[in-house]
Amino acid sequence: MKTKLSELFVGVFLLAGVVSVAFLAMNVGNLDSESSGESYRVSASFDNIGGLNAKSPVTLAGVRIGRVTSIQVDRDRFNAVVNMTISSAYNNLPLDTSASILTSGLLGSQYIGLDPGGDIEVLQEGSVIDITQSAIVLENLISKFLFSQAEK
């Protein structure tokens, strides 16, 4: 009897451990958004990416539809090339969609916001987004403001 009860407790212990790992993976981590199936890759060049980094979200109308995968510097044109994946559920984005780097909150993390255009052709695997708007860097903004004050 004693051993059977202890075996029951061991079973409960193992199950509780596995359930805890599953809970951490599902509710604390972001398992469901990581493995969201099919996606396609596009890239965009920016003059300045500010605080954007790999894994930053890509949003459409504020809804996350993809992630930044990597950021490189173009050696010839001296600008930043941002590669991102977009979920295949949104494979109807017009080719002249524009990408801008936005900030969530006043000093929050940065993300890419997509603004659909009106082209009939759509973005596909390997497409390049031509119309981009760089991140707003606070120092540049302040210096512009100061120079405009000095001219008065």
Binding site: V21, L24, A25, N27, V28, G29, N30
Partner: peptide
Amino acid sequence: QQGVDLYDDI
């Protein structure tokens, strides 16, 4: 859920 990474953190 946004900040905790499944592989890195957990």
